[in-house]
Design a protein around this nucleic acid. Structure first.
Length: 423
RNA sequence: GGAGAGAUGGCAGAGCGGUCGAAUGCGGCGGUCUUGAAAACCGUUGAAGCGCAAGUUUCCGGGGGUUCGAAUCCCUCUCUCUCCGCCA
């Protein structure tokens, strides 16, 4: 969520920038400021009453120790009058605080000046295209046929065990996936990211911290008996590692990476977009997260984009980088780059990574702060990105590298996979 | 799952219903001493809201209650530890 003081001081700018998102509820900004004004008044009133009560209570204490019971009783009567008024104020204060908070969480992050206007994915800006689209031979097929042909993934079996969207990887399919995960993690740790293996179920506070709750509740699987949520991305447990922490500036930047399965309900998405590996309820992903000094978060964003780009290049996949338009960007993000790979048999671009700067939007909620050189406490900036989502990378690798006799694999994973080809 | 104990500042650990935002130790920061460092000594050191400031309010796991007054008493939830049971 945004910082109230920032909203107050930059009201015009905020409204202007939110328009880029096609954010309709512009009134919210003034509403929240108005509610906060009210909050301040009530709080000042309540504080005054509490101060009076505290003083009288101290006096009573003094009188009691001196044994002046009657005087003490007089004072007690005085406090009794204050009491009902205090209760009234506290009730009001509680109500207004909740109101301010509820309004504030409905305002999305402010898009960075780089974010293009636009409403739909068509308005995203292609900032770069790389790699070479392969020319496939005549009998080339989409990955869901290749996975059957080479006995790599069993979608039907997943249907039996769980339901659709839960594929069973097997034989060389399982090994290829494991090889890629291993390669991605090694690549990330070589760049200074610390590897984590976090829990795959999180509590409400964590889901709230990264912004999945309250608004995206339907996206997550919910283990109701214990009120845990299955993680939709490693971003949730990993970013929450630093929730409610004040770190020393010398520890920055904090760079973390984690491989986890991701669980998404994807309610309401059916049809050919979800064919094969294109959209799943459970999939594997390697994530990178950084917590950085607010001054250089945009430099870090560029570094992370370059990091993912090099990874894609090493896989020899045709890719493009999109700068998301205001309408396509996530609620919590200030600037997002999506990476897509070209899956030649489907003749489709598939999103394999999304790298975002959240500035202080998440850290404000999670109270992730640092002490600067002057001893002042400030919010950090948080960023994350996939490096990368496995299924679509796998889909593109299979489709693009198929030959009549097998599937060639990019050099970088030969040593991990133990072979250069699947046949 | 059963029985018991506990949750206090960065950490460890005191705390009688009233001057407790909280002893003490460690750590951190600043200083003295030193060519420099260590040691020693002195000082300082939680967060948030309101306020120009002085100051004031809130926070001792979360929520609720008793009381003029709660870290301290009561209820409840969560978590941790010990023992037993089960177990990869």
């Amino acid at each position: 969520m945004l910082q109230l003081n920032f909203l107050r001081q930059n009201r015009e700018l905020v409204l202007e920038r939110l328009a880029i998102r096609n954010f309709k509820e512009n009134g919210l900004v003034d509403e929240v400021i108005g509610a906060d004004d009210k909050r301040k008044k009530i709080q000042t009133g309540a504080d005054e009453l509490l101060a009076r009560r505290n003083n009288i209570s101290k006096e009573i204490g003094g009188l009691m120790t001196k044994g002046l019971k009657e005087e003490a009783e007089e004072k007690k009567k005085e406090v009794a009058e204050l009491k009902t008024e205090i209760e009234k104020f506290e009730k009001e204060l509680n109500a207004i605080e909740t109101e301010v908070h509820n309004l504030l969480v409905r305002i999305p992050n402010i898009p960075s000046p780089l974010v293009p206007a636009g409403k739909t994915p068509e308005d995203n800006e292609v900032v770069k295209e790389g790699g070479i689209k392969p020319e496939l031979f005549a009998g080339a097929v989409p990955h869901w046929e290749l996975t059957t042909k080479y006995n790599l993934i069993d979608f039907e079996l997943g249907n039996k065990i769980t339901g659709s969207g839960f594929p069973v990887y097997k034989n060389k399919g399982a090994k290829l996936q494991r090889s890629l995960i291993q390669y991605f993690l090694d690549y990330n740790t070589a760049a200074g990211y610390i590897e984590f293996q976090p829990p795959y179920l999180v509590n409400e506070d964590s889901a709230y911290g990264t912004g999945q709750l309250p608004d995206k509740e339907g996206q997550m699987y919910h283990a109701t008996a214990d009120n845990f949520y299955l993680i939709p991305t490693a971003e949730v447990p990993v970013t929450n590692i630093y929730r409610d922490e004040i770190v020393n500036e010398s520890l920055l930047p904090i760079k973390m990476t984690a491989y986890t399965p991701c669980f998404r309900r994807e309610a309401g998405s059916y049809g050919k977009d979800v064919r094969g590996l294109n959209r799943l309820h459970q999939f594997d992903k390697v994530e990178i997260v950084q917590l950085v000094h607010p001054q250089n978060s945009y430099d870090v964003l560029d570094q992370m984009v370059l990091h993912v780009e090099k990874l894609l290049q090493s896989l020899e996949l045709p890719y493009r980088i999109l700068r998301l338009c205001g309408g396509d960007m996530g609620f919590t993000s200030a600037l997002t780059y999506d990476f897509e790979v070209y899956s030649a048999a489907q003749q489709k671009w598939l999103e394999v990574s999304s790298v975002s700067n959240f500035e202080s939007f998440q850290t404000n909620r999670m109270k992730i702060r640092f002490r600067d050189s002057l001893g002042k406490i400030q919010l950090l900036h948080s960023l994350n990105g996939s490096s990368m989502a496995l299924p679509r990378v796998l889909a593109a690798l299979l489709e693009n590298n198929q030959t009549e006799t097998g599937i060639r694999l990019p050099k970088v994973i030969h040593s991990y996979f133990g072979a250069g080809e699947i046949n």
